[in-house]
């Protein structure tokens, strides 16, 4: 689990599908990254529906300091206006640079697919070699209805006009993965 070779492969593969990957020490550093990026892109808010407890308090204070609105629920009302979606991935799959996100919650789905930029945090120890290594866990999740499980590998893309690859057709225009050395603050 979280074997260095898996982490290295995850990074390589994710980058090959235009994902920006950065290794950060923990949640606090990840929040700083999210805020900086949002500001740089001229975003007005961060949607983080699945952050709770003391983590949320911290994120709230950083956002406040930087004049960013923090959105945590009823994201449907914000569709079209969400700058950054900040979420936690359940697993990473090294072989294909894929994030596995269990997103039964509607808000979580909206944050991952209807933000301009999606930032996914991924604890290092949750990176596995391939789907085979996760088969038992994934099958169990699918059997626990309702379940909406997403494999995300890179940003939304199309090649439907003259086979020219173009990023950002429906979903986020950018996908950033922050690999967390520690999953605490």
């Amino acid at each position: 689990m979280g074997q260095p070779e898996n982490v290295a492969k995850f990074i390589e593969r994710a980058r090959s599908v235009q994902t920006t990957v950065t290794v950060v020490s923990g949640l606090a550093a990840a929040f700083d990254y999210a805020v900086d990026l949002t500001l740089k892109q001229g975003g007005k808010n961060i949607a983080a529906p699945a952050i709770r407890g003391e983590n949320l308090v911290l994120l709230e204070s950083i956002c406040q300091k930087n004049n960013l609105m923090l959105l945590t629920r009823n994201l449907r009302e914000q569709i079209g206006m969400i700058g950054t979606g900040l979420t936690m991935a359940d697993w990473g799959i090294a072989q294909t640079g894929t994030l596995v996100v269990n997103c039964e919650s509607e808000d979580l789905r909206i944050a991952t697919m209807l933000s301009e930029t999606h930032i996914a945090m991924l604890p290092k120890y949750r990176i596995e070699a391939d789907t085979a290594a996760l088969e038992v866990e994934l099958a169990a999740m699918m059997k626990t209805a309702p379940c909406y499980l997403a494999f995300i590998s890179g940003a939304s893309r199309t090649a439907d006009i003259e086979r020219v690859m173009t990023i950002g057709v429906h979903g986020p225009q950018e996908l950033h993965v922050l690999i967390l050395e520690e999953d605490g603050l």
Binding site: R76, Q95, G97, E104, E106, C147, F151, G154, R157, G171
Partner: peptide, 21 residues
């Protein structure tokens, strides 16, 4: 199909999920 290792989104759905509309 497209020479990709995996398509960008693979989605697995079991049962009706949350839908606020």
């Amino acid at each position: 199909a497209t020479g990709q290792l995996i398509s960008t989104y693979v989605t697995w759905i079991t049962g009706p999920t949350e839908c606020k509309s």
